[in-house]
Amino acid sequence: MVTRIVVGYTANESGADALALGGRLAAASEALLEVVMVLPIEARGAVVPPDTGYERHLKERSRGWLAEASARLGDGVEQALHIRYAESFAEGLVAAAHEFGASLIVVGAARGGLLGRSRIGSVANDLLHASDVPVALAPAGSRETPVSLGVTRITGAVGTRSGAGSVLDISVRLARLTHAPLRLVSLVSIDLPAGMDEELASLASTAHADDVLEAARRALPAGTTATSVVASGDTIEQAVAALEWHAGEVVIVGSSRLATPSRLFLGSTASKMLRELPVPMIVVPRATS
């Protein structure tokens, strides 16, 4: 069965970033890239009587933009181009992912963010708090990374909360599909209450992080190898900044424990990671059990 990836495409820099990341993931995993432009449902006359001239113009423009996107990807990525209608861009992408049986939705960060960083816009925010399909967020400037680079490493951010198993499973699966090395990371941030001994708290937190990594290593499927590292800092952002990151790397994180089963909900740790993370992040839905 062919793996399918949905890219939410828009004719701007954010759309180009999503397209580039989707292209790299598809090329590395030999997946079919479903490039989707979502138009407002009003353009199809579902709410008001259609203006056929406007509808034709909008569809022609969208087809032109999709053709440009296809040319940008080149011949190295198997692709299909689609126009869909929906009440919202996020709703249309989730519906497309269901339609195609896609394993991932890729969107770009909001415009105006720092180069190499992700700034969550309204579309990504909707997806990262409601989708039942994993969502990848392409940082600003991802379009500058060549598709031919592929995926150079998969990093799974592991923990002990509900959903950690899903992160590990998807990290292993994606590393295999993309032929990329696997790294497991446990984050430690020392945000101390007043009066608490800093050295003692640091030792306890690091020991806990080591235990988390050891449990993750024991849970790896037979024959799977992975490096592991504890990242520490006074804050999550500092812990992320202290890590080494490769061009072409992808990070996988789990949903908050507040997420309903089989749905995404971007938690506070992942949100803090995004402020400093220089590589794409994939958020996976909370497990059903």
Rank of each mutant, 00 (worst) to 15 (best):
A124H: 02
L58W: 10
T260D: 08
G163D: 08
G64Q: 01
S166R: 13
A46W: 13
S271W: 03
A239D: 06
T225Y: 02
A175E: 02
A97Y: 02
A26Y: 09
V135G: 03
R61K: 12
G156I: 09
M196C: 05
V133C: 11
G165P: 15
G163I: 13
G195N: 09
F265P: 00
V48S: 05
P134L: 02
E30F: 11
H57M: 14
D191A: 10
R217L: 15
A96P: 00
D169S: 15
R183A: 08
E55M: 14
T52Q: 09
V7C: 14
S255V: 11
T160Q: 11
T52V: 15
T225Q: 07
A175W: 01
L264S: 05
D234C: 03
G53E: 14
E30C: 09
P285D: 04
L81E: 08
H82F: 13
D197C: 08
L182C: 06
Q79L: 10
G53R: 15
L184F: 07
A194Q: 10
G116H: 02
L115K: 08
R217P: 02
A80C: 09
L200I: 15
P146N: 06
D210Q: 12
L137Y: 04
L174G: 02
V2A: 14
L33R: 12
V253I: 09
V151M: 01
I120P: 00
L19A: 05
H129S: 09
Y9F: 15
A259N: 04
S289M: 10
L258F: 03
V2I: 14
